[in-house]
């Protein structure tokens, strides 16, 4: 038998206690080991609820969830060993008195030996650009700094499956690039589900899931999504500015990745080409 998928859901539904409307209904998809899958859609679409069901924080109302073949509610230990989750609001994750303890927290729970733990904590803190912050108290950090601490805690754990709920929402451009590079470095080695409102972060993803009104409305390649104006509009998605410029100029929307790419493309197409220089 082939290995079970990293993540699989079938006809998954959930309603919060006391709410008439389900937050999630009939969601089904599979993510194979080593895939990098984006999740997008409007606020209230059900993205965070889906992640909470995957790591067992919430129990499915109906339908099934399997993480490497295990049910998060009946086999929580199997699932917790494999899954690391980054919450949408970093305030919710930080628990320890100092930054370094916070990053080490998950490792202590897993019983990792001290020496190895120290090395992993140091590596993770450096990876998110927080060297020098080890003895700072988390509550004195700015929002973006807290988000980096939370991410370092997750990286130190080295889980097989990373569930990231808007991991860059509070980061500046440089911080965002660093985190995305780091995630790129984990590709193939880890299974990643990455929720974001920034489509430019997902242009290289293996697939993108679009959630709206609690339903999975599309499971597509990035190129399909960015070249489908109807699918974008129906789900209140907006192309990143560079791609909007390109498509406004009648150039192929999926091409330019950097402003320099776009500038070259414009020069190439412009009838003024010969005048300049």
């Amino acid at each position: 038998m082939p290995d079970p998928a990293s993540i699989s859901c079938e006809d998954l539904s959930y309603a919060y206690p006391g709410e008439a409307e389900p937050a999630l209904s009939g969601v089904g998809f599979e993510v194979r080991a080593g895939e990098y899958v984006g999740v997008v859609g409007p606020n209230g679409g059900g993205k965070s609820t889906l992640l909470r069901l995957l790591n067992g924080l919430l129990a499915a109302g109906s339908g099934t969830v399997r993480i490497a073949g295990h049910d998060p509610t009946t086999e929580p230990f199997e699932v917790r060993q494999r899954v690391g989750m980054l919450f949408q609001n970093p305030e919710n994750g930080l628990v320890a008195p100092f930054v370094e303890d916070d990053v080490a927290f998950g490792l202590e729970n897993l019983g990792v030996p001290r020496g190895e733990m120290r090395a992993r904590v140091r590596g993770a803190i450096e990876a998110v650009g927080l060297a020098g912050y080890e003895r700072r108290e988390p509550h004195t950090l700015s929002g973006g700094e807290k988000q980096r601490v939370a991410l370092a805690g997750l990286l130190a754990l080295e889980p097989e499956i990373l569930l990231l709920d808007e991991p860059t929402s509070m980061l500046d451009a440089a911080g965002r690039r660093e985190v995305l590079d780091r995630l790129r470095g984990l590709r193939r080695e880890k299974t990643i589900l990455h929720v974001t409102h920034h489509l430019e972060e997902l242009l290289d993803a293996d697939r993108i899931l679009v959630m709206n009104g609690g339903e999975l409305v599309a499971d597509v390649y990035p190129a399909q999504l960015i070249s489908d104006p109807d699918l974008l509009a129906r789900n209140y998605l907006v192309l990143p500015p560079l791609l909007r410029l390109a498509s406004g100029l009648g150039l192929e929307a999926k091409k330019p990745r950097t402003p320099e790419d776009l500038a070259r493309e414009i020069q190439h197409r412009s009838p003024r080409r010969t005048e300049a220089r």
Partner: peptide, 24 residues
């Protein structure tokens, strides 16, 4: 700089003077 400015700046750099627009 926003993407708009970076794109225009890259063009200006190669000798195409198209001013300094900012908004989309």
């Amino acid at each position: 700089a926003p993407a708009t400015v970076s794109t225009v700046a890259a063009l200006n750099e190669t000798g195409w003077d198209i001013g300094h627009p900012v908004r989309f």
